[in-house]
Design a protein around this nucleic acid. Structure first.
Lengths: 145, 145
DNA sequence: TACTATACCATGATATCCCATATATTACCA
DNA sequence: TGGTAATATATGGGATATCATGGTATAGTA
């Protein structure tokens, strides 16, 4: 399970270390790396492991190849996803398209979200988090274990 | 699993490299290459491996033998399909009929769709993708883990 | 024989692998 | 408990291999 945040450097080759703690939770049986794509809600990168992505793909993939309805969804999710393999140090190379989309330059923040995680511009995430906290207070949603 | 997009050149012989990452996912046991045919929905080329094509052919057999749909599909897909073998560098030679149909000239974009992929005119695909993204947002189909 | 299509070879760019280092964390032992 | 060694991890850079792409040669065909 992916928890908490980590902020790391993006080097001049576009590489960034995936937090060691996250790497443990990534199923590398089929593919040693992560799948990354644009978030639909935020200016951030969404990431998960191959197995999870395959489940999504299978749910879209129609044995009825000729069904018209799911075409748009299939295209925008699958064609917009990237397979990012780990190098021997546990880094991935983020494609410029995703970096630009998320406004990431020299640093990025990994944000755990349970079964997936996100990669943000550090400042953008900080701002978002502050807002989220305010909203929680405003709505008087109180967390009790 | 075919993911993400790759835009490559079509040389003056009509050859184009199939993305290395796609080549890995292509089952070459029966035929070392791809099966390509006109998309019935888009101005694009539909492509898959021999194994998947066989599955589709089998699923067509399950349709009512006398149905109009089956006839149309059988005729337009199966009879209009091309077997495109890889050369030693992993390229295929796209037939002019398909190039013309998809409006492809100097460049083409490979689009991953999970169990199959498409080949588009780069600009046409860019436009389509932008629209698809908008539609998804509008319909509030949001990806949540 | 001319034309087309396939097989083979060459090359530059890019991405991947591998090693080095610094810092942080853990383990071990006095 | 305190101090030191050992390990893990993030980051950097250079070497190597892969890949897209262009060109040439050979075989097949009409």
């Amino acid at each position: 399970m992916f928890l908490s945040q980590y902020t790391y450097k993006v080097d001049n080759k576009g590489r960034i270390s995936v937090p060691a703690d996250f790497r443990i939770g990534i199923n590398t049986k089929f593919f040693n790396g992560i799948i990354a794509f644009r978030s639909y809600k935020f200016r951030a990168i969404e990431a998960l492991d191959f197995e999870k992505m395959k489940k999504i793909a299978d749910s879209l993939d129609d044995l009825d190849f000729f069904s018209e309805t799911k075409n748009d969804i299939t295209t925008s999710i699958l064609s917009d996803s990237y397979k990012l393999p780990f190098d021997s140090e546990g880094r991935v190379c983020l494609p410029i398209e995703l970096l630009n989309f998320a406004g990431i330059k020299t640093q990025a923040t990994f944000v755990g979200r349970g079964s997936s995680f996100q990669i943000w511009n550090p400042k953008a995430f900080k701002d978002y988090l502050q807002n989220a906290r305010k909203n929680i207070k405003k709505k008087k949603i109180i967390f009790n274990n």
